[in-house]
Design a protein around this nucleic acid. Sequence first.
DNA 1: AACAAGCGCTAACAATCGTTAGTTTTGGCA
DNA 2: TGCCAAAACTAACGATTGTTAGCGCTTGTT
Lengths: 189, 189
Amino acid sequence: MNKSRHQEIINTAAHLFKEKGYNAVSMRDLASKLDIKAASLYNHISSKQEILAAIVLEVAQEFTYHINTIFPEKSSTQEKLEAIIQNHIEITLRMTDKLACMNNDWVHLQAENKEKYRHLRNAYEDKFRAILKEGKEKGEIKDVDLEIIVFSFLATLRTLYLWYTKKTSVEVEILQRDLPKTLLDGIIS
Amino acid sequence: MNKSRHQEIINTAAHLFKEKGYNAVSMRDLASKLDIKAASLYNHISSKQEILAAIVLEVAQEFTYHINTIFPEKSSTQEKLEAIIQNHIEITLRMTDKLACMNNDWVHLQAENKEKYRHLRNAYEDKFRAILKEGKEKGEIKDVDLEIIVFSFLATLRTLYLWYTKKTSVEVEILQRDLPKTLLDGIIS
DNA sequence: AACAAGCGCTAACAATCGTTAGTTTTGGCA
DNA sequence: TGCCAAAACTAACGATTGTTAGCGCTTGTT
Protein backbone atom coordinates (compact mmCIF):
# COMPACT_ATOMS: atom_id res chain seq x y z
CA MET A 1 0.00 0.00 0.00
CA ASN A 2 2.23 2.79 -1.30
CA LYS A 3 1.28 6.43 -1.39
CA SER A 4 2.30 7.03 -4.97
CA ARG A 5 3.68 5.02 -7.85
CA HIS A 6 6.88 6.93 -7.35
CA GLN A 7 7.31 5.53 -3.84
CA GLU A 8 6.28 2.09 -4.99
CA ILE A 9 9.04 2.11 -7.59
CA ILE A 10 11.61 3.21 -5.05
CA ASN A 11 10.56 0.61 -2.52
CA THR A 12 10.63 -2.17 -5.08
CA ALA A 13 13.99 -0.98 -6.31
CA ALA A 14 15.37 -0.99 -2.77
CA HIS A 15 14.18 -4.55 -2.37
CA LEU A 16 15.88 -5.69 -5.57
CA PHE A 17 19.05 -3.68 -4.95
CA LYS A 18 19.35 -5.29 -1.55
CA GLU A 19 19.26 -8.78 -3.02
CA LYS A 20 21.37 -8.35 -6.14
CA GLY A 21 23.14 -5.02 -5.85
CA TYR A 22 22.53 -1.84 -7.85
CA ASN A 23 24.46 -2.83 -10.94
CA ALA A 24 22.99 -6.31 -11.19
CA VAL A 25 19.42 -5.00 -11.30
CA SER A 26 18.33 -3.75 -14.71
CA MET A 27 15.49 -1.35 -15.33
CA ARG A 28 13.76 -4.26 -17.04
CA ASP A 29 14.10 -6.35 -13.88
CA LEU A 30 12.61 -3.54 -11.84
CA ALA A 31 9.78 -2.94 -14.29
CA SER A 32 8.88 -6.61 -14.50
CA LYS A 33 8.60 -6.79 -10.71
CA LEU A 34 6.03 -3.99 -10.98
CA ASP A 35 4.27 -5.69 -13.93
CA ILE A 36 5.04 -2.91 -16.36
CA LYS A 37 7.58 -2.32 -19.13
CA ALA A 38 10.90 -0.65 -18.51
CA ALA A 39 10.07 2.44 -20.55
CA SER A 40 7.01 3.08 -18.41
CA LEU A 41 9.21 3.65 -15.38
CA TYR A 42 10.32 6.91 -16.92
CA ASN A 43 6.85 8.39 -16.47
CA HIS A 44 7.63 8.39 -12.74
CA ILE A 45 11.36 8.70 -12.36
CA SER A 46 14.01 10.36 -14.44
CA SER A 47 16.86 7.88 -14.15
CA LYS A 48 18.14 4.79 -12.39
CA GLN A 49 20.68 6.94 -10.62
CA GLU A 50 17.90 9.12 -9.21
CA ILE A 51 16.32 6.06 -7.62
CA LEU A 52 19.56 5.12 -5.92
CA ALA A 53 20.10 8.66 -4.67
CA ALA A 54 16.58 8.83 -3.25
CA ILE A 55 17.10 5.60 -1.33
CA VAL A 56 20.57 6.31 0.01
CA LEU A 57 19.99 9.92 1.00
CA GLU A 58 16.68 9.19 2.69
CA VAL A 59 18.27 6.68 5.04
CA ALA A 60 21.33 8.83 5.65
CA GLN A 61 19.13 11.78 6.58
CA GLU A 62 17.15 9.54 8.90
CA PHE A 63 20.30 8.73 10.84
CA THR A 64 21.40 12.36 10.86
CA TYR A 65 18.05 13.44 12.23
CA HIS A 66 18.02 10.91 15.02
CA ILE A 67 21.50 11.49 16.31
CA ASN A 68 20.68 15.18 16.60
CA THR A 69 17.78 14.41 18.93
CA ILE A 70 20.16 13.03 21.54
CA PHE A 71 20.56 15.44 24.41
CA PRO A 72 23.97 17.06 24.48
CA GLU A 73 24.36 17.41 28.25
CA LYS A 74 21.70 15.80 30.33
CA SER A 75 22.16 12.07 30.08
CA SER A 76 25.19 9.92 30.78
CA THR A 77 27.42 8.64 28.01
CA GLN A 78 26.03 5.18 28.55
CA GLU A 79 22.49 6.45 28.07
CA LYS A 80 23.48 8.28 24.92
CA LEU A 81 25.12 5.20 23.46
CA GLU A 82 22.09 3.12 24.34
CA ALA A 83 19.91 5.63 22.54
CA ILE A 84 22.09 5.37 19.46
CA ILE A 85 21.91 1.60 19.51
CA GLN A 86 18.13 1.72 19.80
CA ASN A 87 18.01 4.13 16.86
CA HIS A 88 19.95 1.72 14.72
CA ILE A 89 17.71 -1.17 15.65
CA GLU A 90 14.59 0.86 14.99
CA ILE A 91 15.73 2.14 11.61
CA THR A 92 16.91 -1.33 10.63
CA LEU A 93 13.46 -2.73 11.31
CA ARG A 94 11.57 0.10 9.69
CA MET A 95 13.55 0.42 6.46
CA THR A 96 15.55 -2.78 6.09
CA ASP A 97 15.80 -2.80 2.30
CA LYS A 98 16.79 0.82 1.94
CA LEU A 99 19.33 0.54 4.70
CA ALA A 100 20.96 -2.48 3.11
CA CYS A 101 20.98 -0.66 -0.20
CA MET A 102 22.63 2.38 1.38
CA ASN A 103 25.37 0.26 2.90
CA ASN A 104 26.12 -1.73 -0.22
CA ASP A 105 25.44 0.63 -3.07
CA TRP A 106 26.33 4.18 -2.03
CA VAL A 107 29.59 3.61 -3.92
CA HIS A 108 27.62 3.74 -7.14
CA LEU A 109 26.29 7.22 -6.55
CA GLN A 110 27.57 9.84 -8.96
CA ALA A 111 29.62 12.88 -8.07
CA GLU A 112 27.30 15.30 -6.27
CA ASN A 113 25.12 12.70 -4.59
CA LYS A 114 28.10 10.68 -3.47
CA GLU A 115 29.53 13.81 -1.91
CA LYS A 116 26.23 14.54 -0.16
CA TYR A 117 26.18 11.03 1.26
CA ARG A 118 29.79 11.20 2.38
CA HIS A 119 29.08 14.47 4.11
CA LEU A 120 26.09 13.08 5.99
CA ARG A 121 28.00 9.99 7.02
CA ASN A 122 31.00 11.96 8.20
CA ALA A 123 28.80 14.30 10.20
CA TYR A 124 27.17 11.29 11.84
CA GLU A 125 30.49 9.74 12.71
CA ASP A 126 31.72 13.04 14.10
CA LYS A 127 28.70 13.32 16.39
CA PHE A 128 29.32 9.80 17.56
CA ARG A 129 33.00 10.51 18.10
CA ALA A 130 32.17 13.62 20.10
CA ILE A 131 29.92 11.66 22.44
CA LEU A 132 32.67 9.11 23.03
CA LYS A 133 35.30 11.79 23.54
CA GLU A 134 33.18 13.53 26.13
CA GLY A 135 32.57 10.23 27.86
CA LYS A 136 36.26 9.51 27.92
CA GLU A 137 37.06 12.90 29.42
CA LYS A 138 34.41 12.38 32.09
CA GLY A 139 35.96 9.01 32.81
CA GLU A 140 32.79 7.15 31.90
CA ILE A 141 34.56 5.24 29.16
CA LYS A 142 37.65 3.07 29.28
CA ASP A 143 40.99 4.28 28.00
CA VAL A 144 40.83 2.51 24.68
CA ASP A 145 41.69 4.02 21.30
CA LEU A 146 38.66 6.07 20.34
CA GLU A 147 38.69 5.25 16.64
CA ILE A 148 38.55 1.57 17.41
CA ILE A 149 35.40 2.06 19.43
CA VAL A 150 33.84 4.16 16.68
CA PHE A 151 34.70 1.54 14.15
CA SER A 152 33.60 -1.55 16.03
CA PHE A 153 30.32 0.02 17.14
CA LEU A 154 29.37 1.26 13.70
CA ALA A 155 30.50 -1.91 11.99
CA THR A 156 28.05 -3.87 14.08
CA LEU A 157 25.22 -1.34 14.01
CA ARG A 158 25.39 -0.68 10.29
CA THR A 159 25.12 -4.33 9.37
CA LEU A 160 22.26 -5.23 11.68
CA TYR A 161 20.10 -5.75 8.63
CA LEU A 162 22.12 -8.87 7.88
CA TRP A 163 21.06 -10.28 11.20
CA TYR A 164 17.47 -9.29 10.73
CA THR A 165 17.05 -11.22 7.50
CA LYS A 166 18.19 -14.40 9.16
CA LYS A 167 16.19 -14.25 12.38
CA THR A 168 12.50 -13.92 13.09
CA SER A 169 11.15 -10.61 14.29
CA VAL A 170 10.09 -12.30 17.53
CA GLU A 171 13.66 -12.05 18.71
CA VAL A 172 13.84 -8.32 18.35
CA GLU A 173 13.27 -7.81 22.07
CA ILE A 174 16.27 -10.00 22.75
CA LEU A 175 18.32 -7.87 20.39
CA GLN A 176 17.18 -4.71 22.14
CA ARG A 177 18.08 -6.21 25.48
CA ASP A 178 21.38 -7.93 24.74
CA LEU A 179 23.03 -5.89 22.00
CA PRO A 180 23.65 -2.85 24.26
CA LYS A 181 25.02 -5.19 26.93
CA THR A 182 27.38 -6.83 24.45
CA LEU A 183 28.66 -3.62 22.93
CA LEU A 184 28.98 -1.66 26.16
CA ASP A 185 30.06 -4.23 28.71
CA GLY A 186 31.69 -6.94 26.59
CA ILE A 187 31.13 -10.63 26.92
CA ILE A 188 33.70 -11.86 29.43
CA SER A 189 32.18 -12.62 32.82
CA MET B 1 56.25 -9.02 -8.29
CA ASN B 2 53.68 -11.73 -9.04
CA LYS B 3 54.50 -15.36 -9.55
CA SER B 4 52.52 -15.80 -12.73
CA ARG B 5 50.41 -13.68 -14.99
CA HIS B 6 47.46 -15.65 -13.70
CA GLN B 7 48.04 -14.41 -10.17
CA GLU B 8 48.72 -10.92 -11.39
CA ILE B 9 45.36 -10.84 -13.12
CA ILE B 10 43.59 -12.07 -10.03
CA ASN B 11 45.33 -9.58 -7.77
CA THR B 12 44.56 -6.70 -10.07
CA ALA B 13 40.97 -7.85 -10.37
CA ALA B 14 40.65 -8.00 -6.57
CA HIS B 15 41.92 -4.46 -6.37
CA LEU B 16 39.40 -3.19 -8.91
CA PHE B 17 36.53 -5.24 -7.52
CA LYS B 18 37.20 -3.80 -4.10
CA GLU B 19 36.89 -0.24 -5.35
CA LYS B 20 33.98 -0.55 -7.77
CA GLY B 21 32.34 -3.90 -7.17
CA TYR B 22 32.35 -6.97 -9.39
CA ASN B 23 29.63 -5.86 -11.78
CA ALA B 24 31.01 -2.37 -12.25
CA VAL B 25 34.38 -3.66 -13.43
CA SER B 26 34.48 -4.74 -17.05
CA MET B 27 37.01 -7.07 -18.57
CA ARG B 28 38.21 -4.07 -20.56
CA ASP B 29 38.79 -2.15 -17.33
CA LEU B 30 40.76 -5.03 -15.93
CA ALA B 31 42.78 -5.49 -19.10
CA SER B 32 43.62 -1.82 -19.38
CA LYS B 33 44.95 -1.80 -15.83
CA LEU B 34 47.31 -4.56 -16.93
CA ASP B 35 48.18 -2.72 -20.17
CA ILE B 36 46.77 -5.40 -22.40
CA LYS B 37 43.55 -5.88 -24.39
CA ALA B 38 40.50 -7.61 -22.96
CA ALA B 39 40.73 -10.58 -25.28
CA SER B 40 44.28 -11.29 -24.08
CA LEU B 41 43.00 -12.03 -20.62
CA TYR B 42 41.51 -15.23 -21.93
CA ASN B 43 44.94 -16.67 -22.53
CA HIS B 44 45.24 -16.87 -18.75
CA ILE B 45 41.75 -17.22 -17.34
CA SER B 46 38.60 -18.81 -18.67
CA SER B 47 35.95 -16.37 -17.48
CA LYS B 48 35.26 -13.37 -15.29
CA GLN B 49 33.29 -15.62 -12.98
CA GLU B 50 36.34 -17.83 -12.52
CA ILE B 51 38.33 -14.84 -11.29
CA LEU B 52 35.70 -14.00 -8.70
CA ALA B 53 35.51 -17.59 -7.51
CA ALA B 54 39.29 -17.80 -7.16
CA ILE B 55 39.36 -14.67 -5.02
CA VAL B 56 36.40 -15.47 -2.79
CA LEU B 57 37.21 -19.11 -2.18
CA GLU B 58 40.87 -18.43 -1.45
CA VAL B 59 40.02 -16.04 1.37
CA ALA B 60 37.25 -18.24 2.72
CA GLN B 61 39.61 -21.22 2.85
CA GLU B 62 42.18 -19.07 4.61
CA PHE B 63 39.71 -18.38 7.39
CA THR B 64 38.65 -22.00 7.55
CA TYR B 65 42.23 -23.12 7.86
CA HIS B 66 43.07 -20.72 10.64
CA ILE B 67 40.10 -21.40 12.85
CA ASN B 68 40.94 -25.08 12.71
CA THR B 69 44.38 -24.40 14.15
CA ILE B 70 42.85 -23.14 17.39
CA PHE B 71 43.26 -25.68 20.15
CA PRO B 72 40.00 -27.34 21.13
CA GLU B 73 40.71 -27.89 24.84
CA LYS B 74 43.89 -26.35 26.13
CA SER B 75 43.37 -22.61 26.18
CA SER B 76 40.65 -20.53 27.82
CA THR B 77 37.76 -19.12 25.88
CA GLN B 78 39.27 -15.68 26.14
CA GLU B 79 42.52 -16.90 24.61
CA LYS B 80 40.65 -18.60 21.80
CA LEU B 81 38.70 -15.46 21.00
CA GLU B 82 41.86 -13.40 21.09
CA ALA B 83 43.44 -15.81 18.63
CA ILE B 84 40.47 -15.43 16.32
CA ILE B 85 40.68 -11.66 16.47
CA GLN B 86 44.38 -11.78 15.65
CA ASN B 87 43.63 -14.04 12.71
CA HIS B 88 41.19 -11.55 11.32
CA ILE B 89 43.61 -8.68 11.71
CA GLU B 90 46.42 -10.65 10.11
CA ILE B 91 44.36 -11.79 7.13
CA THR B 92 42.96 -8.29 6.69
CA LEU B 93 46.47 -6.89 6.42
CA ARG B 94 47.81 -9.64 4.22
CA MET B 95 45.00 -9.82 1.67
CA THR B 96 42.99 -6.62 2.03
CA ASP B 97 41.68 -6.44 -1.51
CA LYS B 98 40.61 -10.04 -1.76
CA LEU B 99 38.94 -9.90 1.64
CA ALA B 100 36.96 -6.82 0.70
CA CYS B 101 36.00 -8.51 -2.54
CA MET B 102 34.84 -11.62 -0.71
CA ASN B 103 32.65 -9.60 1.62
CA ASN B 104 31.06 -7.47 -1.07
CA ASP B 105 30.88 -9.69 -4.11
CA TRP B 106 30.29 -13.28 -3.03
CA VAL B 107 26.65 -12.66 -3.89
CA HIS B 108 27.63 -12.62 -7.54
CA LEU B 109 29.05 -16.11 -7.52
CA GLN B 110 27.16 -18.63 -9.59
CA ALA B 111 25.41 -21.71 -8.30
CA GLU B 112 28.13 -24.20 -7.32
CA ASN B 113 30.70 -21.68 -6.21
CA LYS B 114 28.17 -19.72 -4.20
CA GLU B 115 27.22 -22.93 -2.44
CA LYS B 116 30.86 -23.72 -1.73
CA TYR B 117 31.35 -20.28 -0.23
CA ARG B 118 28.21 -20.52 1.85
CA HIS B 119 29.35 -23.86 3.17
CA LEU B 120 32.76 -22.54 4.19
CA ARG B 121 31.23 -19.51 5.85
CA ASN B 122 28.67 -21.56 7.75
CA ALA B 123 31.34 -23.95 8.91
CA TYR B 124 33.39 -21.03 10.18
CA GLU B 125 30.46 -19.53 12.03
CA ASP B 126 29.66 -22.90 13.55
CA LYS B 127 33.20 -23.28 14.87
CA PHE B 128 32.96 -19.80 16.32
CA ARG B 129 29.58 -20.57 17.86
CA ALA B 130 30.94 -23.77 19.39
CA ILE B 131 33.76 -21.89 21.10
CA LEU B 132 31.30 -19.40 22.55
CA LYS B 133 28.92 -22.11 23.66
CA GLU B 134 31.67 -23.95 25.46
CA GLY B 135 32.76 -20.70 27.10
CA LYS B 136 29.24 -20.04 28.24
CA GLU B 137 28.90 -23.51 29.76
CA LYS B 138 32.18 -23.07 31.57
CA GLY B 139 30.92 -19.75 32.88
CA GLU B 140 33.70 -17.83 31.18
CA ILE B 141 31.25 -15.82 29.14
CA LYS B 142 28.33 -13.68 30.24
CA ASP B 143 24.77 -14.86 29.90
CA VAL B 144 23.99 -12.94 26.74
CA ASP B 145 22.20 -14.28 23.68
CA LEU B 146 24.81 -16.28 21.81
CA GLU B 147 23.74 -15.29 18.32
CA ILE B 148 24.12 -11.65 19.18
CA ILE B 149 27.70 -12.21 20.20
CA VAL B 150 28.42 -14.16 17.05
CA PHE B 151 26.89 -11.44 14.96
CA SER B 152 28.49 -8.45 16.60
CA PHE B 153 31.95 -10.02 16.66
CA LEU B 154 31.88 -11.10 13.06
CA ALA B 155 30.32 -7.86 11.86
CA THR B 156 33.29 -6.00 13.28
CA LEU B 157 35.97 -8.50 12.29
CA ARG B 158 34.74 -8.99 8.75
CA THR B 159 34.77 -5.31 7.95
CA LEU B 160 38.16 -4.49 9.40
CA TYR B 161 39.39 -3.79 5.89
CA LEU B 162 37.24 -0.67 5.89
CA TRP B 163 39.17 0.60 8.87
CA TYR B 164 42.48 -0.34 7.35
CA THR B 165 42.02 1.74 4.23
CA LYS B 166 41.40 4.84 6.32
CA LYS B 167 44.23 4.55 8.82
CA THR B 168 47.95 4.24 8.43
CA SER B 169 49.60 0.91 9.01
CA VAL B 170 51.54 2.41 11.91
CA GLU B 171 48.44 2.09 14.05
CA VAL B 172 48.16 -1.63 13.55
CA GLU B 173 49.75 -2.32 16.91
CA ILE B 174 47.07 -0.18 18.52
CA LEU B 175 44.44 -2.21 16.74
CA GLN B 176 46.01 -5.44 17.94
CA ARG B 177 46.11 -4.10 21.47
CA ASP B 178 42.72 -2.37 21.78
CA LEU B 179 40.36 -4.31 19.53
CA PRO B 180 40.38 -7.44 21.73
CA LYS B 181 39.82 -5.24 24.78
CA THR B 182 36.89 -3.50 23.14
CA LEU B 183 35.21 -6.65 21.89
CA LEU B 184 35.81 -8.76 24.99
CA ASP B 185 35.49 -6.30 27.87
CA GLY B 186 33.37 -3.51 26.42
CA ILE B 187 34.00 0.18 26.76
CA ILE B 188 32.26 1.26 29.95
CA SER B 189 34.68 1.89 32.80
C1' DA C 1 -18.79 16.33 -25.84
C1' DA C 2 -14.23 17.86 -25.75
C1' DC C 3 -10.06 18.09 -23.45
C1' DA C 4 -6.01 17.14 -20.79
C1' DA C 5 -3.24 14.59 -17.93
C1' DG C 6 -1.57 10.30 -16.26
C1' DC C 7 0.28 6.15 -17.43
C1' DG C 8 0.87 2.34 -19.98
C1' DC C 9 2.68 0.48 -24.51
C1' DT C 10 6.01 -0.72 -28.84
C1' DA C 11 10.11 0.14 -31.16
C1' DA C 12 14.36 1.58 -31.33
C1' DC C 13 18.93 3.98 -30.26
C1' DA C 14 23.85 3.91 -29.08
C1' DA C 15 26.85 2.05 -25.85
C1' DT C 16 28.81 -1.49 -23.52
C1' DC C 17 29.08 -6.19 -21.94
C1' DG C 18 31.65 -11.04 -21.81
C1' DT C 19 33.55 -13.85 -24.92
C1' DT C 20 35.38 -16.24 -29.37
C1' DA C 21 38.09 -16.80 -33.65
C1' DG C 22 41.91 -16.18 -36.02
C1' DT C 23 46.37 -13.81 -36.53
C1' DT C 24 50.76 -11.75 -35.24
C1' DT C 25 54.39 -10.84 -32.05
C1' DT C 26 57.51 -12.18 -28.56
C1' DG C 27 61.13 -14.62 -26.04
C1' DG C 28 63.64 -18.64 -24.59
C1' DC C 29 65.68 -23.03 -26.00
C1' DA C 30 67.32 -26.57 -29.61
C1' DT D 1 69.70 -19.36 -36.45
C1' DG D 2 65.36 -21.60 -36.46
C1' DC D 3 61.52 -23.25 -33.94
C1' DC D 4 57.67 -23.42 -30.88
C1' DA D 5 54.81 -22.15 -27.52
C1' DA D 6 53.17 -18.40 -24.79
C1' DA D 7 50.90 -14.31 -24.95
C1' DA D 8 49.76 -10.41 -27.17
C1' DC D 9 46.83 -8.44 -30.94
C1' DT D 10 42.41 -7.07 -34.22
C1' DA D 11 37.83 -7.79 -35.31
C1' DA D 12 33.68 -9.20 -34.40
C1' DC D 13 29.56 -11.78 -32.28
C1' DG D 14 25.09 -11.62 -29.85
C1' DA D 15 23.12 -10.09 -25.72
C1' DT D 16 21.94 -6.64 -22.64
C1' DT D 17 22.20 -2.03 -20.83
C1' DG D 18 19.80 2.79 -19.75
C1' DT D 19 17.11 5.73 -22.08
C1' DT D 20 14.16 8.31 -25.69
C1' DA D 21 10.41 9.04 -29.07
C1' DG D 22 6.03 8.61 -30.14
C1' DC D 23 1.54 6.53 -29.80
C1' DG D 24 -2.91 5.03 -27.46
C1' DC D 25 -5.90 4.06 -23.77
C1' DT D 26 -8.18 5.45 -19.59
C1' DT D 27 -10.18 8.62 -16.39
C1' DG D 28 -11.89 12.69 -14.41
C1' DT D 29 -12.91 17.73 -15.34
C1' DT D 30 -14.68 21.50 -17.95
